[in-house]
Design a protein around this nucleic acid. Structure first.
Length: 600
RNA sequence: GCGCCCGUAGCUCAGUUGGAUAGAGCGGGAGACUUCUAAUCUCUAGGUCGGGGGUUCGAAUCCCUCCGGGCGUGCCA
């Protein structure tokens, strides 16, 4: 078992800076701002000040590579029709962008569309290939972020929802790391509290049954078959002697045995899907008193709230005045019977997180906990860290098989566990499907579809694009396309495509081949921005959507363009384009925690 | 009752800061393998963005209201 403590994590200190947006976007914004300034300065545009500029990528590729609505935005203030404003700005832009743009056009109600030179578009190929792992990455922000997720009670197997949150938390962590933050993954183990007692009593009852004794199963006990399995293992290991011990001694012993087993199991399943936590934080450590009777972390947490003036006593209980921070009602920390609430432990836990120096804490909770968000935010604010907690609510998963809902019953313990699902569909498909929908949307998971190795299955669609590229590279090396001993990366590194060669890409616009090349170039260029948006919005599903778009652009390219052709220049250019696609596909899949196979 | 999330094509869902003719996959219809993997591609049909008001040059997106669905609303964990 790994260490179960609130262990410290190595200090990280890197200069603070926000992730950089795409270079082209920044440049265009700057140039447009200059153009506006110039037109305002010489009186052609009667504006008091230049409006904020924001270029965007038009949805419709026929509108060019970039567009700005600046004329529409400023028409009113300038007292001119939008198209007239657009004329003035566009004239300026044509001069300033002569080097990089083929055309600056006015369209629709007054949009200015900018069409980049092919050479500028093809630039992305060299950039992707030169930057390697750094491509699409933000500069190090120095921001220390903790993502806490799954945190399933260690009293049974994970359900399918836990699997989704595991995929989500891990992918968000990967994306934030790529965007430049220092990220720590943490699992909070609720190993204190009554559910552990019930758990122990359940195992104890099954153990006694196995020794042939008549026992009444606890009414609120856990009835899953795994309880019996655990009891059986204890029986095999330690024999029947525990049947004669006192119930207290037996349950105390069984609790630790069973807990260790379940925890190891959770770690095993999570590891199996590629999710590894940096810290497993035990709730018990918060309850434990310090040396020579020093107060526990929970007691210290309450003390801190009290010092901040937000604690009061009422009807024998100790309360946190969360209403002072916008909560609906105040919350109990210490019950009238002297025990602490789960919330009190969570206050101590979060205090500990900030003591560890995190600049931002992201908690991923199941939808059934969303009523808890406000009080936790209140507590964090009261502890002096307002705004440094972000709670992401993960919606549930509905399992379907052949269009039918898979029914589960918690009472009888009859359920499809996350491990069952992993065994059936595999880690790649499970992760991909979990991440495909936005977080705040409940997910319908069709087991049949996830297992299907066909065109209907988006995860294979994306992986297949990657495998196809690897196959092309094997062919280009002169080897058999099925020869798995070929080092694809090494082949790729030998491909050299100079500017003249890359300029051939998309040189025949209007043809199927030319459009396919241009489409792929444009899609590749979007990647850094997609990563930045996915990071900012904590939205891995932006990357599944992107990966499918990129795979589609590649498949079209593949269909319409022979890559390994005789003409050495065209061949190297297309190989380089395919290689850049390979790298970006692998990176996108990597951020999702999904493998990028070289053969399928 | 109150709070949060959601409602977009037959189905499952994207839609960035309010932008142009609202997109994709599946499913329906019609096609393409002598090629570097057809796990692919091409064409086609399909919409009152839940309803109604408002804000504005412009609304799926922002505001109000109504309808429908999910979850929450413990001195449980």
């Amino acid at each position: 078992m790994p260490p179960l403590t609130g262990q410290r994590y190595p200090e990280c200190s890197v200069p603070t800076r926000l992730p950089e947006e795409s270079r082209v976007r920044d440049t265009l914004n700057a140039v447009i701002a200059e153009a506006l300034q110039a037109a305002i300065a010489d009186g052609r545009l009667p504006l008091p000040e230049a409006p904020a500029v924001a270029v965007e990528r038009p949805r419709d590729p026929s509108h060019g590579d970039w567009a700005t609505n600046i004329a529409l935005v400023s028409a009113k203030a300038a007292g001119m029709p939008p198209r007239q404003v657009a004329e003035i700005v566009a004239a300026e832009l044509r001069e300033r962008l002569a080097e990089v743009a083929d055309a600056v056009e006015i369209a629709g109600p007054g949009f200015i569309n900018i069409r980049l030179r092919r050479g500028v578009l093809a630039d992305v190929v060299s950039r992707v290939r030169a930057e390697g792992d750094a491509h699409g990455a933000g500069e190090r922000t120095g921001s220390r972020v903790q993502v806490e997720f799954v945190s399933a009670n260690p009293v049974g197997p994970m359900h399918v929802g836990h699997g989704r949150w595991a995929a989500l938390g891990d992918s968000i962590a990967r994306i934030l790391e790529h965007a430049g933050d220092d990220v720590q993954r943490e699992f909070y183990v609720n190993d204190a509290g009554v559910q552990m007692d019930i758990f122990a009593a359940s195992v104890s009852a099954r153990y006694l049954e196995l020794t042939g004794r008549e026992v009444e199963f606890p009414e609120d006990g856990y009835r899953g078959a795994y309880i019996t399995e655990i009891a059986r293992e204890i029986l095999a290991d330690e024999g029947e002697s525990w049947a004669d011990a006192t119930a207290d001694a037996r349950e105390a012993h069984f609790k630790e045995k069973a807990y260790a087993q379940v925890l190891a199991h959770l770690q095993h399943v999570l590891h199996g899907m590629g999710v590894d936590f940096d810290v497993w934080f035990s709730e018990r450590t918060l309850h434990a008193s310090g040396d020579r009777g020093a107060p526990s972390a929970i007691e210290r947490g309450i003390e801190r709230l009290r010092e901040a003036g937000h604690v009061f006593e009422h009807e024998g209980a100790v309360w946190f005045r969360s209403t002072a921070f916008g909560d609906d009602k105040d919350r109990v920390l210490k019950k009238a019977d002297g025990s602490y609430t789960y919330f009190a432990a969570d206050v101590a836990y979060h205090a500990d997180k900030y003591d560890r120096g995190f600049d931002l804490v992201i908690d991923i909770w199941g939808a059934d906990h969303h009523g808890y968000v406000k009080r936790m935010e209140s507590a964090v604010a009261a502890l002096g860290h307002p705004g440094k907690l972000e709670v992401i609510i993960g919606q549930l998963v509905n399992l379907f098989r052949n269009g039918e809902v898979v029914r589960m019953s918690k009472r009888t313990g009859e359920m499809v566990t996350f491990e069952d699902l992993l065994d059936e569909v595999g880690a790649d498909a499970a992760r991909y499907f979990f991440l495909r929908r936005s977080t705040d949307q409940p997910l319908d998971f069709d087991i049949g579809l996830a297992k299907q190795r066909s065109a209907d299955n988006p995860v294979y669609y994306v992986q297949y694009a990657h495998a196809r590229i690897c196959s092309i590279l094997r062919k280009a090396s002169g080897a058999d396309t099925a020869d798995e001993s070929v080092d694809v990366a090494a082949v790729a590194s030998r491909i050299a495509a100079d500017e003249a060669a890359l300029a051939l890409l998309g040189s025949e616009p209007g043809t199927l081949a030319g459009e396919a090349e241009l489409g792929l170039l444009r899609k590749l260029a979007e990647f850094p921005e997609i990563v930045a948006v996915a990071a900012r919005q904590r939205a891995p599903h932006k990357l599944t959507t992107y990966a499918e778009d990129l795979a589609s652009a590649f498949h079209q390219f593949y269909t319409h363009c022979q890559v390994v052709v005789d003409d050495p220049q065209l061949r190297s250019a297309r190989l380089a384009l395919a290689d850049a696609s390979r790298l970006v596909l692998a990176r996108a899949l990597g951020l999702l925690g999904v493998s990028a196979p070289q053969r399928m």
